[in-house]
Amino acid sequence: MTDMSLVDDVHEHEHDHHSHDAPSRFGVVGPIMVVAPLFVALLARGRVGALDADALRLWSTLFVSITVQALPFLALGVVLSGLIAAFVSPELVERFVPKRPALAVPAAGVAGLALPGCECGSVPIAGRLMSAGTPPAAALTFLLAAPAINPVVLVSTAVAFPGDRMLVLARFLASFVTAVAVGWWWSRRGADNLIEVDGHRHDGPSRFLRFSDTASRDLVHAGGYLVVGAAAAATLQLVIPRSALDVVADNELLSILLFAALAVLLSICSEADAFVAAGLPQFSLTSRLVFLVVGPVIDLKLVAMQSGVFGRRFAMVFAPVTLVVATLSAVAFGQVFL
């Protein structure tokens, strides 16, 4: 009898769905939205190539490359953010994070040394740190420091610039100072109300479910914005060919501004940007340092992800300030060391 009623139940729902889209067991519309584009893509397979549109194929390669490259780092990031949601309580944060922002901010900067990832992974982590009660200024400092000063980034910079050891030091210091300066500025400004972080506590029945639900949610959330940023970056790489830059190579001020803009627009991973900068030897070291310091803290895909995770109003304030501070810091350290 119980079985019968269950079967009836299912039938009823199927029927409902056909008539007026009432709740069905799984909700069919969502999955169809996933499967339909894939079906269209399958139909288009082979025909897109027939167009022989070089630009379209190149765009596709760049777009897919940026997302594929970011995915392992994003996965690592959401696993950590899931663990934070499952295991880090506000009480724990209170015990370990220094109360005074003057201390918490540089401590968060130093913590950035430990995460060997690109920028994409640190956005969800910073978001979860905030929901777990970390002062936003400290979480934001971590967000800026982690992709810029971790060991992998510093080693690849040293490999890309074998003759300029001081550049590695200058990059480290300029990035660290940028992260801490922006963090202090944020804590003094007290604009935490601009941040619309997802405060949703996933009170699953178990820690494991809290972990997996947070990880999935952050993956889908940050991943969606990553795709926006990757599409924009791939488009700009096509529109601004790297060979078209030589025009301003002789003017120091123009090169600095150009490289700050390029860092934002090209959105190259922090672990790879040193090689791109090394490939442009006609520019001064200082202007290329600007590229290396600005890129990891602000670029198109980061702005997209930050406005998704922390809210658009936040990004409108945070992004320009970060850009200016990073540029100035890089120029200052470039003058001293290079």
């Binding site: 909700g27 397979r45 190539g49 991943g223 990757a230």
Partner: peptide, 29 residues
């Protein structure tokens, strides 16, 4: 059913299907 109908992730996540669709359709080299 009711729990399953509740949205639990932001809609922007749909965009993740774009790179999958590009890999399948264009098969970029």
């Amino acid at each position: 059913d009711e729990t399953n109908q509740r949205p639990i992730s932001p809609g922007v996540g749909w965009l993740l299907i774009a790179p999958v669709a590009v890999i399948i359709s264009v098969a970029p080299d």
